[in-house]
Design a protein around this nucleic acid. Sequence first.
DNA 1: TTCAATGATTGGTT
DNA 2: AACCAATCATTGAA
Length: 346
Amino acid sequence: MDEQPRLMHSHTGVGMAGHPGLPQHMQEGTGGTDGDGRKQDIGDILQQIMTITDQSLDEAQARKHALNCHRMKPALFNVLCEIKEKTVLSIRGAQEEEPPDPQLMRLDNMLLAEGVSGPEKGGGSAAAAAAAAASGGAGADNSAEHSDYRAKLSQIRQIYHTELEKYEQACNEFTTHVMNLLREQSRTRPISPKEIERMVSIIHRKFSSIQMQLKQSTCEAVMILRSRFLDARRKRRNFNKQATEILNEYFYSHLSNPYPSEEAKEELAKKCAITVAQVSNWFGNKRIRYKKNIGKFQEEANMYAARTAVNAANASSHGSQANSPSTPNSAGGYPSPCYQSDRRIQ
DNA sequence: TTCAATGATTGGTT
DNA sequence: AACCAATCATTGAA
């Protein structure tokens, strides 16, 4: 490749004796005044710089050495440094102080709050406690879930820290590498310390954007874990037998109007150790499911009817007859299972 | 593994 | 706001 330029300069030596390779118009003034000689020197050195990429490696090395030893080199180098300094400064002015990224701050805050980026033990338990508080503190048997949650959180945490460390290390390695390279090059081409500094900050910015992605995906993972842990549907537990019996008892003894008042709901909730909302859910589900398939619930209905009857008998035998359990079955609402079952049997 | 039972959620209605 | 109806997602027995 580039055979053409090579051919053009192929006859030029490295030696400083002549001025080979110079364009015709530059050679014209040779042998003139003292100023002409200096001009010639500069032209020579510039020409060599221009053609340095056209040389083979050995040739270039030799040329580099020659350039380094040239008496004009320091002066030229300084001029180039000055020019560069000016342009670099003008570039720097535009992008000086960047404000801290609000999104990054948000991510950092969240990771800290979730105990991913904070201190090892304290953060984790704090997050678990927060999760427990948010879950409504329903049952006492969620300690197993807590440990599960904590285990997964610490897994995320570990991955996060490993990756973060990896990126940091890579960043440092790359930075040192680039700095060494620039320092090495600064011996042959004008590189100011400021320029190196700027390069380092560019590298850091690049790596911190990668870190931000890591933080973002970590946040997402934590959110998913949290939602899984907190989503009641996923950790649904059937009510215990006693609670179900209390609810069923109320339902079948108020079959004509199975709509407990707010007070009744509260009392049922207390008795069953569940929330009022859960009582409402239960009655909503029960009503619709009973209505949809009364036949299926006949047996259950009869059982509870019999039980309330026994209770009533016991209560009356103990004294007051008036306050037997209210069974306003015959009114509106759903058909009475007893009568219906009688009808069915016949 | 399948499937009925069941607690919770969602969207619509009154 | 309470309720209904349909649906989702899990549980637990077969």
